[in-house]
Structures are given as C-alpha cells and as structure tokens.
Design a binder for these strands. Structure first.
Lengths: 112, 112
DNA sequence: AAGCGTTATGTATTTGTAAACATATCGGTA
DNA sequence: TACCGATATGTTTACAAATACATAACGCTT
C-alpha cells in the first residue's frame, strides 16, 4: 500500500520539542493517570517517557505534566489544563494537514 | 529560535520511499552529474547514496537516476526526465505546506 | 595495454540510540 | 514502622545504523 505522509513538530533551536511522540504520550497519560502505564501502552521504556516529560515541562511556559510520587497509590501523572489546550491545537493542525494531502495524490503515481 | 516544521514523504508498505533526503540527493546529482560527488556534497557516504538510488529506481515505474560506469570520465549519474517531474511535484507540495504552517503560529506560543 | 575516474559491492569498525537492569526515593495506608 | 506502587536516576547491555576501508568492475582515451 502506498501513501503520502506528513508529520509536523515544534522545534526549539533545532531540537525537537513537541511532535507525534510527545502528543501520543500526553494522550496516554491523560487516559492512564500514570507515566509508567502510559509508557507501557506505547511500548516505550519508562526512562524515555520520563525524559520526554522533563523536556516538555522545562521548555514550555507552564508545566504540561504534573508528576506526583508517593502517596496512596504510589504516585501518578496527569496532564495540565495548559497541555490540553496544546493538544487541541495540535489535533486541529493535523486535521488541516490531512485535508491538504488528501487533495494531493499525483505524487503517488510514481510508484509501481 | 522556535519554529514549526513539517515534512512529507511517500511510503510504500510502511517503508520510506521519497522524502527530503532523496529529493535533495536528486538535486545534487542533477547539479554534479556524479553520484559520488552528490554524496560528498551532502556529507553522506557513497554507499548510502547508492542504496537510495537503487530503491528509487526499483520502486518507481521508470528509473529516476541513470548511472553509467566506465567511459571517458569514468562514468556518471544523471536524473531522468521522469525524475524531474516528480521533483517539481514535490517542490510544489512543499510550497503548499509552507503556506499552511505560516498561518499556524498559535502552537509556538507554548514555548518560553 | 595502461591509466583514469566513476560506479559497484563486500567486510569491518564505529557510533548513537534504545532497552534492560538495578536501586533509591517518596508519601500515603494499615 | 513496615509495606506498597509509582516516580527518579545511574549503570550496563544490546542492537541498529552509519561510516570507513578495501577492492573489483567498467569503458573510454591515449
């Protein structure tokens, strides 16, 4: 199956900041309420997921993920209201991109 | 500097076929008339460049790069007329994408 | 036939990334 | 205070991808 794909992301000084990976991770955190479970869902090591969250929080104006350790259930993770706004913006941009590439099928003719 | 980036590429069964890398390689081949020189320009190993050309030629309906070995100047490489068409299509798509993301600056506000 | 510059191709080495493993830390509950 | 489940973090291991190196093949020119 041949297809035209597009992805978009935000960069800060050439370093990737927010893209498909972090976006999906935030969605999983929102769903699971736990960073380790979110990582597991994405078949990603906890360490990598944790590093992504650190970068997201450090580079954005407000924290995107609130991490809590200890307590009744050992701790947990949740996305901030600010993160929800960004996720919405990103979803909307992706929709626009999707609409753009659906009109663009000429390039696919190159393949057998 | 913070910026929103988008890239697009063609996939065949999940395997990347034509994207920014191959596109730039074709441009360099057109300019240099040599695969080794094109690879050198891109600071890419000859072997990798050669592999990209193989995949491009094998998966497309017509050859995109014509390779010649031996002869007066030892051989050379040139892009086919068919390749020129594809390069033009790709450039036009990239232009459309560029126009799309220029209207979309809200997401960048997330960064410090 | 010898030389040249390029393509063609195999092997070895390096590099960078991701995962795996091992612990430490925290703060509720019982 | 002992336990639990999650976050926090360092070290080691495994794997994949890119590069580096070496050499063959080719065909035109002289």
């Amino acid at each position: 199956m041949k297809q035209l794909k597009i992805k978009c992301w935000i960069e800060e000084d050439g370093e990737k900041f927010y893209g498909p990976g972090p976006h999906e991770l935030l969605k999983q955190i929102q769903k699971e309420g736990s960073l380790s479970k979110a990582a597991e869902q994405m078949q990603m090591s906890y360490k990598k997921a944790w590093a992504i969250v650190q970068r997201l929080n450090q580079l954005s104006k407000e924290a995107l993920v609130i991490l809590k350790k200890g307590g009744q259930h050992g701790g947990g993770a949740e996305v901030s209201l600010y993160a929800l706004e960004i996720m919405k913006e990103y979803d909307e941009l992706q929709l626009k991109i999707q609409q753009l590439i659906e009109q663009e099928e000429k390039l696919l003719k190159v393949l057998k």
